[in-house]
Simulated assay, not measured.
Amino acid sequence: APADAPPAAAGPAAPRARFDILGSALLGASLMGLVLGLENAHLRWAAAIGALSLVPFVLWERRAADPVIDFSLFRRRTFMGGSLIIALQNFAMYSVLFELPQVAARLSDVGPRDVGNTLVAMMAMMVVASPLAGRASERFGARAVALIGCSLALAGMVLLAARPLVVITDAIPALLLLGAGLGLTSAPSQAAAMSDVPREQSGMAAGLTSTMRYLGGIAGLTVLGLVLTETRDSDAVLREHTTAITVFCVALLLAIGCALTLPGRSRAPASARL
């Protein structure tokens, strides 16, 4: 073509798919029913309706041009492993934040300051460990850092179950371990999960990971509602405490299994080492 020829006209841009309003409404109604039903014993029917509403949601999403959730994400091993770690750890973390004050209040008189000073130990360790986890995962790989974090969190939960809980501050050593483990695990798990999805699906994947995080916390509080009672008999209270912590230990043990799906340390190319 001559050098001074005008550039060829670009073809018409492909029309973007319309936002999936129906899928969003079905998903929102399903999750709302599940949350209300799991959190309130007298609304169990809402949980059943929410669960049943997932059926038309799945059927619709499989035919939608631009679905709210692309179910192919669930076939991505690393994405599911990282997302499940976050969900399982939130299952344990949020439950402990509610369970410990309730148990301590039924065993002995406990003031707001004691509760705050105890729980802040876990949160402080999470704040300290989280930035370290990001740097460590870049050097040693997400799998190694997440395995260490999950193991520390499990060790803290086991210590919480094994150590006598005379006063709530007796839980501080266990919470320090738990917080360090949670802080070390979160960053590599989330980064590995997001790196496993295509860029055009990153927003969808982030939303799905956040949803799983919140559902993990809700599921943990539901377990507490089933396990804890209002009795003040010390033996019964300690049995309930042990039962709840055992369930949380199982969740953290499953998180260790999920950590094995994360990528290991990547070797730097030869040009980068020169």
Rank of each mutant, 00 (worst) to 15 (best):
M204E: 11
T231I: 11
L226D: 00
T229E: 03
C249K: 02
C249Q: 10
M212H: 01
A251S: 08
P188G: 07
G216F: 14
T231F: 11
T222A: 15
A251V: 05
G220T: 07
V250D: 03
L221W: 00
T246Q: 04
T185Y: 12
T185H: 09
C249W: 01
Q190N: 14
R199G: 02
A191Y: 01
V223N: 04
A236Y: 04
D233W: 05
R199S: 10
M204H: 04
L215W: 04
C249L: 02
V227M: 07
E230D: 15
G225C: 11
I245F: 12
S195M: 09
T211K: 03
V250S: 03
D196P: 09
L215D: 04
R239S: 13
S202D: 00
A205F: 01
A219R: 08
L208A: 12
T242F: 11
Q190Y: 08
T211G: 11
L252N: 07
E200I: 11
T185W: 11
S186M: 14
L208T: 12
V227K: 06
A219P: 11
T246G: 14
T246V: 14
M212A: 14
L226I: 06
V237D: 13
M212S: 07
M212E: 02
A193S: 10
Q201V: 02
R239A: 14
